[in-house]
Design a protein around this nucleic acid. Structure first.
Lengths: 162, 162
DNA sequence: GCAAAATAGTTGCATATGAAACTAAATGCA
DNA sequence: TGCATTTAGTTTCATATGCAACTATTTTGC
């Protein structure tokens, strides 16, 4: 079988068929996947994606500085700062200043934040499972591997190219 | 080899490790890939992603109504309307009203739009090639296939689940 | 042939985002 | 010590986005 992307890659056409352009396909697919997950935390808990990501980081490991949250979530510090501000306003996260380095914050989920986190996790997992139910173990391995490879390669290009 | 995602799927932990959660991995990878492509049309031509997508749709097939652009780019009508407005202001796209159905527009790249489109296409392809250079033919087929499968499945979940 | 529903596209508004400037604290080093 | 640099995090401003309401036109069904 010859995929559209391959057809495109091998013909010399000067048009670019979006449906055969991997970055586009990836973007559209990702967007849909993201929305299936967002339904969970957005509709039921009124969390934005960034807020959920911060909570997810803290759910794994507490306390964390905002900086550490950036590193673990691939968000930049502005996004993290704003997500944290809202989470604190809603009392899902508590902050106190690190006495050893007063620039740093020390962030934790509040008991309420913990509770919501523990409610979301199995729902998110169930969604992921539903998404992937038609994938064989081998396909899952491949998908994981190929997505990782793409990520690393894109990172290289970005760092080298500008 | 056991991937992180698999470990996560099979252990009963109540934490959710983002790095092992496919929707997250996909989102981060996609974002990086998108940025490598965006460098081309954003830096050199000051086009937004949506503007570029509209141009890409018109580059393949002209004229098109705004509605047809929506269908081909997976954008919603508001995004398309705004992208078109800017492209028209910059004289990269021309619109005239369909006399048969005066609600519909008929959109085309202007000669200037065409020229820019033809400049971008090979650059975008080169970027895609650079991104994928370490992938074997089999991996490319797999990637294409798995991304498509994910997309379809996510679409199903969205339509069924709300 | 005409009112009700559907379709194409735009606009207003509230909120989100990204880049750069900014504050405050800590560190490096002459 | 003390001033320049770096680091953590926030704020500002301009622009982007998403949703719902809106206008204009066409289609549907009686």
């Amino acid at each position: 079988m010859v995929t559209k992307a391959q057809q495109r890659r091998t013909d010399g056409s000067d048009r670019l068929e979006l449906d055969a352009f991997l970055p586009y396909r990836l973007s559209v697919a990702q967007q849909e996947v993201s929305r299936t997950i967002a339904q969970i935390y957005a509709e039921r808990y009124e969390l934005s994606r960034n807020e959920w990501r911060v909570m997810a980081a803290l759910g794994c490991d507490q306390p964390l500085s905002a900086r550490a949250v950036c590193d673990r979530t691939n968000m930049d510090k502005v996004q993290v700062s704003r997500a944290i501000a809202r989470l604190i306003r809603r009392r899902l996260v508590a902050r106190h200043t690190d006495p050893a380095d007063r620039r740093c914050s020390s962030l934790r989920l509040t008991p309420r934040g913990q509770r919501i986190y523990r409610e979301i996790v199995p729902l998110a997992r169930a969604r992921e499972a539903a998404l992937l139910e038609a994938f064989s173990a081998a396909e899952l391995r491949q998908l994981d591997r190929l997505v990782g490879k793409l990520h690393r390669r894109a990172g290289e290009l970005l760092r080298s190219g500008g």
